[in-house]
Simulated assay, not measured.
Amino acid sequence: MFAIISAAIAPGIALLSYFYLRDSLRPEPVSMVIRTFFFGVLVVFPIMILQHIMQTEWNLQGQILQSVLNSAMVEEFFKWIVVYYTAYKHVEFDEPYDGIVYAVAVSLGFATLENFFYLVINGLNVAIWRAFLPVSSHALFGVWMGYYLGLGKFSAEEHKRQRFVLVSMLLPMLLHALYNLIFSNQYWPWFILPFMVLLWWQGLKKVRLAHEFDSKIAKTRPN
Rank of each mutant, 00 (worst) to 15 (best):
V167G: 01
S155R: 02
F38W: 12
V135T: 13
A218M: 14
T220R: 15
A8W: 07
A87Y: 04
F183H: 01
L178E: 01
K153T: 08
P194R: 12
I100H: 09
H159F: 13
A156M: 08
V43W: 07
M169C: 07
G146M: 05
E57S: 13
V104L: 07
I192G: 01
F213K: 15
S31F: 09
Y102C: 01
V120I: 15
M169Q: 10
S17W: 11
H90G: 03
T36V: 05
W129C: 00
G99E: 08
I4N: 05
Y179P: 05
Q55Y: 07
G109Y: 10
Q61F: 10
F117E: 04
Y97L: 04
G99D: 06
F154K: 02
V82Y: 02
G99K: 10
I5D: 00
L170H: 02
L209Y: 13
E92A: 14
Y187C: 00
L69R: 11
E212H: 11
A131K: 11
F110C: 04
P194N: 12
F117S: 07
A72R: 02
W144N: 03
K205R: 15
R130V: 09
L25C: 00
Y88T: 10
L204V: 07
S17D: 00
V33T: 09
L178A: 08
L113S: 06
Q63D: 12
V104I: 09
G146D: 03
G40I: 01
F191K: 02
L42A: 15
F195H: 00
Q61N: 09
A103K: 05
I192D: 00
T56H: 14
R208D: 10
G12P: 06
E158I: 11
L204P: 00
S31V: 10
L108C: 07
P46E: 09
T220Q: 15
L65I: 08
Y88R: 10
T220C: 02
L198Q: 03
L15I: 15
